[in-house]
Design a protein around this nucleic acid. Structure first.
Ligand code: FES
Ligand code: FES
Lengths: 158, 158
DNA sequence: GCAATGTCTATCATTTTGGTAGGAATTGCA
DNA sequence: TGCAATTCCTACCAAAATGATAGACATTGC
């Protein structure tokens, strides 16, 4: 039941880019992002590239370059991002909706474990497929403002 | 978001032992179990040993030996078994209730990802900590009977 | 005493994870 | 025009996790 560092970094990066976007900074470089999120630069680069290939980001090369969102935030479902980076949401393949695969169980039709894991997968999907990047960014932003915490990317945007 | 084979096998074995118990067969050998569940014998042995060390099973050595439940089924929470075999339920450590650990996020208090993952972890825990082995066995048994499927361990119990 | 069984230790191949290194290609700007 | 900043690409790597397998020893029932 674990999200890898790769997945964690991907989501953190995406949220950060979304946050920057919401604050008026539509372009963020990998080095900025790495610094802000304390992620190894080179590792992050690879991840951003993957997010780009997945269609979530576009990029601009060269000096003053960086990454920016390729889709409106409310259309980026967290669940899809996780699926792309980590694979199926279901804890076990025979309980997966989008990537079903037979398992070694002798009698799948009466497997209690499968039933249970289908429930778990649905519970996870209900959250991750309902929440979009827009939701996540909004919640974060609201929390930051309520606590009067320093907003990221605002000095840099000046 | 994945359950390893080890975890899968552990749960399947436990459910099977519970099923056998419910059908009057209180003692099951690793070879029977391996055959029934199509799990490599030696691998299963190691897992059963771990379940024993965790206090879920007792064993009887020698001929006619085997494993049997060390606790009443309704007191074995699936969530605890998973935690024991797989580790924390939360997808990310900073969202774990039972095994919290700080992550590299610069501002944990305002991290949108963490919020989201706390929700996911709660959704998972709500299912896995609510369901006991007794529930799982009962559901399985009911399904088997409704479909008039051949019950496992009954011929062998004769 | 023998067969069946649990217990223990060691080993292993493969995959996944979490990176690092270096350089080529592109672009903005002085 | 050239330099610095940036993305993009390929290759490589060490450590850990995964999913087993092998073999010997200990215990018990018959
Ligand atoms: S675990 Fe997949 S059907 Fe039983
Ligand atoms: S991911 Fe752990 S606090 Fe942000």
């Amino acid at each position: 039941m674990k999200l890898s560092k790769r997945g964690e970094y991907a989501l953190r990066a995406l949220i950060d880019i979304g946050l920057a976007h919401a604050l008026g900074k539509t372009l963020v470089s990998s080095s900025e992002l790495a610094k802000q999120e304390r992620i190894p630069v080179k590792f992050l680069e690879a991840i951003l590239l993957e997010l780009k290939r997945a269609g979530y980001l576009h990029s601009k090369r060269g000096a003053q370059g960086g990454y920016f969102l390729a889709q409106p935030m409310h259309r980026i479902k967290i669940g899809d991002v996780v699926r792309r980076i980590e694979g199926p949401l279901a804890p076990i393949r025979c309980a997966s909706v989008t990537a079903y695969e037979k398992c070694s169980c002798p009698d799948e039709a009466h497997c209690g474990l499968r039933l249970l894991m289908v429930d778990v997968r649905n519970a996870i999907a209900n959250i991750l497929d309902r929440y979009t990047l827009a939701d996540t960014v909004e919640v974060t932003l609201r929390k930051l403002r309520r606590d009067k915490a320093p907003l990221p990317f605002v000095e840099a945007a000046r």
